[in-house]
Each structure stands twice: as C-alpha cells, then as structure tokens.
Nucleic acid binder design. Structure first.
Length: 587
RNA sequence: GUCCCCGUAGUUCAAUGGAUAGAACGAAAGCCUUCUAAGCUUUAAAUGUAGGUUCGAUUCCUACCGGGGACACCA
C-alpha cells in the first residue's frame, strides 16, 4: 500500500490492549540486556492457535545481536515476564518463539464490552478532527452505469465506512463525466433514432437502456468520416453552450441519465455529500494550464503538455492543438475546486481503476508543484477490474456489462433460490432477495485484495454457500433466531462457565479480534481482511451452533451461550455494515 | 522499447518476513423426531523457473518465463 497513506495514519491508537501491554513489558526487559540498540520485534497472534493467543519473535531478533541461542534468550525473557492477572501460561518453542496464553476472563470482559457498546464496538474516536474526502463512482452521463462503476461504488462505499469507523469525518464525492465526445455521440444517436412517444412514462432504467443503445449505435457509425464530423460539431456546440435543438436534447439526456444514476447509487446505499459534474470544472482547467506554461507545462506541436520525463513519468497532454482542455487538465481543476470547497480538508483520496495509476502519479506531482497545500494530501488508490474469463469487456463497442443488469440478475437468482427453500409471502421474499443479493455482490467484490482484478463467473455471480455474503448473513439470522426463541437474556450477568467447550472458546476468542481487524482494514485499504474475519467468525459460530444447544441448556450455560450468540450477532452486524451490507432478521 | 501490476490445489481467492501454506467451489463419504441443512463432520489436491538477503522467504532483492495494463492531442 502507498507509503503516503500509511504516514497519514501513523499515531498512537491502541488497537489491541494485550499487544500494547506485552510489547511494553518486553521492551523493558530488553533494556536490561543491552543498552541503546533498537530491536525490531512484534507481538502477534500465532497462525496456529494451539500455540497460544499471542506470540513474539523477540528472541530471534535478539539472537543475532547478542550472538546467543534464541531458545536461551527466549527462556530468559519468559522468566522475567510476570503478569498473573492477564497471562495464564507462557511457553517457549523452537526456534525461539515465546507464546502467551491469556486468561479466559479477559475474553469474557471483551464480550461484555461488545454487549455494552453494541454498534459502537470496534470503532475509534481518535481521528475525529480530521476530514477526508473520498472520490469514487465517477460514472458518465449519456451512457449506462456499467460493471466497472459498480465495483468503484461498492469499493468506495466500504472505504468510506471504514474511515468513518476510524473516527474521521468523511465526505463522499462523485465526479461524473457530463461533457465530452461520449455525450455528443449519444446525442447524435438519439437524433437519428428519435424519442418514442410514451418515453416519459418509461421506467428510468429502461430509458437509460434506450439511451445507451444510441451511444453504441453512434460509436459504430463513428468510423464514417462524415458522421464523425457531425458528432464533432455537436461536441463543439455543447462546449460552447449554444442553444439549439441538439444542445437541448443533450441537456434532456443528462437529466434522464442523472435520474438513472441516482437510483442506482441509492440502491447500493450511496448518497453523495458532494457532486462534481465535469461541466463545472472544465472552465478553470484551461486557466490553470495556460498560467503555468514555462515552469510546469510546455508547448509541443501546438499542444500544451507536461513533460514528465524529468520526474521519471510519462508525458501527458493538457490542452489539445485545437485548444480544448483534456481530462488531465480537468483533474487539476477538480483538485483546486475540492480544496476551495473544503479548505480544512486533511486528505483527498481518489479511487479509480488500476490503469490510471501512472496517470495519477503525474496529476498528483503537478498538483504538488502548483500549490504546496496538496503536498501529501492528494492520494490516488487504484482498484482492480471485474473480468469475465480473464477478459475485460469494452464499453465503446457496447460490450460492457450494465450495472442494472447485474443487480437485477443477482436479485432474480436469489429470489428463485428462496422460492425453492422457504415459503415467504411476496413482500417479504422480495425484501430478503434484495438484501441477500446485494450482500452476495458486495461480499464478492470486497473479499478480493483491493488492487487485484476479480475473475467472476457470470453464471454464479452470487454464491449462497461457503465463503460468501449470504453465508455470513445466514449465520447472523441464526444467531438472532436463538434470541427470539429463548426470550429472556440478561446481558449484565454474563459469567464464565467452569467448563467451556472448545467451540465456545474458539468463538469467544475470535470475537475479541474484531477491533484490530477493522483498524487494519481501514488503514491498509483492505476490506478483504474484514471479509475473511467475518467469514471465520460465521464459521466458528456455526460450529458452536451445531455443537452447543442454547435454548434448552441449563440456565447457567444458557445465559453464557446467549451472550455468545448476541455478541456474535452484534459483531457480524457491525462488520457487515462496514462493508455496506445490510442485515435482516429472517432468510 | 520504457515503466507499473499479477503468477499459490482442477477453478476462484487467502496467508502484518515466522512455526504443519489456509478457505470456498467442484469431486468422494457421512449428519435433520433438539435453537433456520443457505448448515455441520471427514477425504484427495498448490507456492512459474533460477539465484541472492535472512536464524527463517509465498512474502524482500536480481534475472528469466508467462498473463494484463499505461505510455501525445479520446475519459
């Protein structure tokens, strides 16, 4: 992950109190071994849980410096650590790990925290004064919202939620392309095809489909030089804000497009705080470029360019030979506009797909040269594509997968599945299908590493079994169902059982890891860590569910297991919400 | 050509430089008169190649092989 963003998060937030305590204690012990030397060691959860709850590699790190056997060092350190309130057992293992088993009381107290803090459990407050803008979505008007935008929207929303969870004030921003050749093409296409008489009564997504077809049609005809010239004329009119039949049509199409886009975003759970249409920023773009010819930009073949070679970057055109600003100039103007609208912005994050990585390196470099206020405050984070059979589908030739089609198909598949399994009335079935299909879609997208491409199979877009959103949701529903069946539960009286089974303990311990995971998922831009965690939590809960009866258990066991169920449900709900996934009580 | 990203079971994905490389789907076999079987329990199966750094490398470095992308008037 980008160094810049890591620097931004560098602070003293306590993420895991146990790690904090152990690291401090070990640091003190090390001081008795040597005087000034810095030792890099960590306290972490061992990959193999049977080894302990926490482990440290400090002895191996010291072995080279002290020129001693790591096992000996480990034993010496282990002897000096004393924390009888917290530590159950300390064990030294080859090649020199020191493993700690923590007392179960600690995990019980953490469970109590969950029950008390409820939806606030796992959230942080330290960064509340800082304001971050996250730009994501970035669709075009005059064209349908496609699968790439869907990925941007879902990824962006989770980043927003994760940052809010870290305690930041987040501004959700959309920058959409409502000007440029694609709008002229679509306008030309609609002029050819005409608008059906009853068009006003059409559903907004059906309208968009019609509009998108016009775009595809125009793109195909664009190879014809005569038509190309016609479309370029329309483009010129739009830029010059002429008032004629063509530009009025362009405006109408824009309105229909925005209705479609608002609906799609709303369905995904996104309401933007700030919208930047390209038409609002392109005018300043020209000024910025022309005022900085000489120091940053230079003229070449009639165009104005940034020669990135001296900065180890590529060359980019900012004003064409014809005198038009390019998208790169608009991105500069957008940067200035953002900081003008929010002068107290601490950080801007622009999310785009990976192929723009090098491009944004140049944009950010130039912004920093133009004004010091951008220094370390303008960041680009790339996300991977959605691929079918390892291939990207082209939007220009009409091969793009429409966002609405994906959402509708996921919904239909889910509804069919539910019909097979359960007997819900139509209204309930539709609501469950909506939530479950979105959970499937979002979980699929977010469970991959952020910058990597996703190879999806269109036939099984939404998985219902195994590592999937519906699986996690289902586990939540089961947990809630227990509470509903059992009735009374006194959260204040949670007591540790004398005899606790392995699956109960596994679940209890896993719950306590939640805050650390949300912290990492946010600061490392890695929602997939949270997906992995929630899936593991759901698995552990299902094992517990299969092995430990709750409702019919003796009173003491019952109360403890109820607490576990309620705590699990709470953490699942909190985690899912950070992925932008809603929960339901039945499915 | 220059630069960037990616190569892990048949497939889709995990693994802050750590201990026996985890899951899911698919395949094979079990578990519903007890809280929702969208579940649980078993079995088989993988780090592209060659070096290097390190006590320790899937992870870091170098080269190569393979896949994708960016690189002048289109976003």
């Amino acid at each position: 992950m980008s160094m810049k963003i890591q620097e931004f998060f560098k602070n003293n937030v306590v993420v895991d109190p146990i790690i904090e305590v152990l690291e401090q204690e070990i640091t003190e012990i090390i001081k008795t071994f040597l005087l000034d030397q810095e030792v890099n060691f960590i306290v972490e959860h061992p990959s193999e849980e049977s080894h302990g709850d926490y482990a440290t590699n400090v002895a191996m790190a010291l072995a080279g410096i002290l020129k001693k056997n790591p096992l000996e060092i480990a034993n010496e350190i282990a002897k000096k650590i004393s924390n009888p309130d917290l530590i159950e057992k300390i064990e030294v293992m080859t090649p020199g790990f020191i493993n700690f088993r923590i007392k179960n009381d600690y995990f019980i107290s953490e469970l109590k925290n969950i029950l008390e803090q409820k939806e606030d459990y796992g959230s942080f407050e330290q960064e509340v004064s800082k304001k971050i803008m996250v730009e994501f979505g970035q669709p075009n008007t005059h064209k349908a919202f496609h699968i790439g935008h869907l990925k941007s929207a879902i990824s962006g929303l989770s980043i927003v939620k994760l940052f809010e969870n870290l305690g930041f004030k987040v501004i959700k921003t959309n920058y959409y392309g409502d000007i440029g050749m694609h709008t002229a093409k679509t306008t030309w296409g609609i002029l050819q095809k005409g608008i059906p008489d009853d068009f006003d009564n059409w559903d907004k997504h059906k309208k968009m489909k019609y509009i998108d077809d016009a775009y595809v049609y125009a793109s195909e005809k664009f190879e014809d030089k005569k038509i190309e010239a016609e479309i370029k004329e329309i483009n010129k009119d739009i830029y010059k804000k002429e008032d004629n039949e063509r530009t009025r049509l362009y405006e109408k199409i824009k309105v229909w497009s925005l209705e479609h886009l608002d609906a799609v975003f709303a369905e995904l759970g996104i309401i933007y705080d700030k919208q930047y249409p390209e038409t609002k920023v392109y005018e300043n773009a020209l000024k910025i470029v022309e005022e900085n010819i000489g120091d940053i930009f230079s003229e070449s073949d009639g165009a104005i360019i940034y020669d990135g070679e001296k900065d180890g970057l590529a060359t980019w055109v900012f004003r064409t030979g014809e005198g038009n600003v390019t998208y790169s100039a608009k991105d500069l103007a957008l940067g200035f506009q953002k900081f003008e609208d929010y002068p107290d912005l601490n950080l801007n994050i622009t999310l785009t797909s990976v192929e723009q990585t090098d491009y944004f390196k140049a944009i950010i470099k130039i912004l920093e040269k133009l004004d010091n206020k951008f220094k370390k405050k303008y960041i680009h984070i790339p996300f991977g594509w959605m691929l079918r059979g390892g291939k990207k589908t082209s939007s220009r030739m009409g091969g793009s997968v429409k966002g609405m089609d994906i959402l509708e198909e996921a919904f239909e598949v889910t509804q069919t599945k539910i019909k097979e399994l359960k007997d819900y009335d139509e209204k309930e079935r539709k609501e469950i299908s909506r939530v479950v299909s979105l959970a499937g879609l979002k979980f699929l997208i977010l469970s991959h590493e952020f910058h990597k491409n996703i190879n999806y199979d269109p036939k099984k877009f939404v998985n219902f079994e195994g590592f999937s959103g519906p699986y996690v949701l289902y586990s939540y529903v089961r947990a809630k169902s227990i509470l509903q069946k059992s009735g009374k539960f006194k959260s204040g009286e949670v007591e540790l059982l004398q005899i606790i089974s392995e699956c109960e303990l596994n679940l209890l311990k896993w719950l306590a890891r939640y805050p650390q995971i949300t912290y990492r998922a946010g600061t490392e831009i890695s929602p997939h860590l949270l997906c992995n965690y929630l899936y593991e939590l759901a698995q552990r809960f299902n094992q517990f569910y299969a092995n430990c009866p709750v409702v019919n258990a003796p009173e003491k066991e019952k109360q403890f297991r109820l607490a576990l169920s309620v705590g699990t449900a709470q953490v699942l709900k909190n985690g899912l919400s950070l992925l932008g996934i809603e929960t339901i009580e039945n499915m």
